[in-house]
Design a protein around this nucleic acid. Structure first.
Lengths: 247, 247
DNA sequence: CGGCTTATTGACATACGTCAACTATTGTGG
DNA sequence: CCACAATAGTTGACGTATGTCAATAAGCCG
C-alpha cells in the first residue's frame, strides 16, 4: 500500500511560493468550464484562490470530509479513490488537466464520497467552496457551465456502470484502450496514462486479472509492453469489445 | 422477455385526451426542481408540454435515439435499461415521481445512452427538448436547479459504482434495503417498489443470485415474502453490509 | 548496481452465472 | 369468481470468470 501524504491543513496563500502565476491564470481562463464566465466573476474567484503543487501520493481530501475547496486541475493527474470497510481500495475515476474536482460535493455542500489522491505530480487551483457557491449564485454562465460539466460527467459514470454490468474484464480493458485510441482506425499506438494497478482498480478488477486480460487481448492484436500499447486493428478490437459510440 | 410497447411517433397535444390538467400542473410546480423557477418561464415551458399516460412496458426512448423531450415523471416508475451487444439487458437506475429523465441527454443534445421503459403505469410530462434548452438559457433558477439535480444524481451513480466494485451481491442487496428503510433504527418493514428481477438487474446480478442473496440475508434477520421485506435489526444489517452514510 | 515496487504467471479457491426443474404468483377470459 | 395459462421466483447441480496466494521477473530510482 502506498504511503499517502496527507494534506491536512492548508497553508494560506500568502505564505506559499505557489501563488497564482500568469501561466496558471491563462490555463484556467482557457478551460471550457470557465470560457464563458464573466471576467469580473472569474477575477473575483481567482483572487481568493491559490495554487498548490502536490507530489504523487498526496491526498487532497478524504472520503467523508466536508468539501472546503473546488479543486481545478491545472496539470497532472488525480484519482478518485473509494475505500471499503475492509480497506480494499478502488478507483472510481481519473481526473486530469481542465477537470473540476469534485463539483457535486461543493455544489451541495455535502461530504466527499471518495478520496482524492494525486497520481502524477499535479498543480491544483484551490477555490474556496463558499466563494465558488457564491459565484454560482451570481453568474448564470458559470452555473450553466457547471451544469454542462456535470451532464458530461454523468454520462461517463453511466458508461462505467454499463461497462461493469455488461462486459467481461477483457472487454472492459479493450474499451478503455479504445477510448484512448479515440476514433482512430486501423493500427493505433497509445500510452497508458496510469500505472497498471490503478487502471485495474478503475476497471473493477485486480492487477492479476488485468494482466490476464491483456494476455487474452493479444489474440485480438493488442500488443506492446510497459505503458506502450499497440492495437493492430482498431476495428477488430471494437468488435471484440462490443464497443459502440454509446459506450 | 417482456414485449415492449414502442412509442414511436408522439401524438400532438391537441389530439390527446391527456393534456395538462390542473392536478398535473400542481404536481410539477411542487417538484423541487421547478420550485424556484420564475413562473413566467415555467408557464412558457408547460404551455408547450403535454402529458402522456403510459402502460407498463412502454418504451419512452431507445438507447441511441436523439433526445426529443425531457420526460418529467408525474406518477409511476421508469427504468433506465442498458442493453449489451448480446442482448443482455440491465437496469442502470430507477426513476419515480419528481424525476426528470434524462436531463444530460437533453442538455447536451446527445443520443441516449440507455432506453427508458415504464415499469409501473406512469404519467409523464413531455417537455420539448429545444424549448427546455431555451428555458435553461433564459432562467438562472432553472439552470441552478438542474445543476443541483445533476449533482445529486452524480452522487447516486458514484455510490452505485462503489457498490459494484467493493461489495458482494448479498451486501448490495442489504444496502438497497437499507436505503429503502431510510434511517430507521431497530426493526423495519419495507416494500420493494420493483419486481425482483428488475431489482436484480439494478444491483448487477441475476434473479437467481438475488434469491440466494436474500436467503443469506435471513441469517442477518431479513425476512418476508413477495414484495414485503422485514428487517429485524437495521443496525445488524448495516454492519453486515458495511453501510455508511457515504453509501 | 542493488533494493524496492510493480507486473506477470501459475496453482488453486470461490462467488456468481447458467441451466433446468419445480413452485408460487399474477392476470385473464369463460 | 374460478380455472388455467403465463410469468415470476426459488432451489439444486454444475460451470466459469475472476479473485487469492505465492513465486518469479521486470522496471524504476537512489
Amino acid at each position: 500500500m502506498a504511503h499517502a501524504v496527507i494534506i491536512g491543513t492548508v497553508t494560506p496563500p500568502e505564505a506559499m511560493d505557489v501563488s497564482m502565476r500568469g501561466q496558471d491564470e491563462d490555463r484556467v481562463r482557457g478551460f471550457a468550464a470557465f470560457a464563458d464566465v464573466e471576467p469580473a466573476v472569474l477575477d473575483g474567484l481567482l483572487e481568493h484562490s491559490f495554487v498548490q503543487t502536490l507530489p504523487k501520493g498526496a491526498v487532497l481530501f478524504e472520503q467523508g470530509d466536508e468539501a472546503r475547496f473546488l479543486h481545478v486541475i491545472l496539470a497532472g493527474r488525480l484519482g478518485l479513490m473509494a475505500r471499503s470497510d475492509s480497506d480494499e481500495e478502488t478507483v472510481v475515476e481519473f481526473f486530469a488537466a481542465g477537470d473540476a474536482v469534485i463539483a457535486p460535493a461543493i455544489i451541495l455542500d455535502m461530504p466527499y464520497l471518495m478520496s482524492g489522491r494525486v497520481l502524477e505530480e499535479a498543480r491544483i487551483l484551490m477555490m474556496p467552496a463558499a466563494r465558488f457557491r457564491a459565484a454560482l449564485a451570481e453568474s448564470h454562465a458559470l452555473t450553466a457551465a457547471m451544469m454542462r460539466e456535470l451532464a458530461r460527467h454523468w454520462r461517463l459514470l453511466v458508461r462505467q456502470i454499463k461497462d461493469l454490468k455488461l462486459r467481461s474484464a477483457p472487454q472492459r480493458v479493450g474499451c478503455y484502450l479504445l477510448t484512448l485510441a479515440d476514433g482512430s482506425e486501423g493500427a493505433a499506438a497509445i500510452v497508458l496514462p496510469e500505472e497498471r494497478r490503478m487502471l485495474a482498480a478503475r476497471l473493477g478488477m485486480t492487477p492479476e486479472s488485468l494482466s490476464r486480460a491483456f494476455a487474452q487481448l493479444r489474440e485480438q492484436g493488442v500488443g506492446g509492453r510497459g505503458r506502450e500499447v499497440e492495437i493492430a486493428d482498431v476495428g477488430r478490437l471494437r468488435a471484440f469489445c462490443a464497443y459502440d459510440d454509446l459506450a
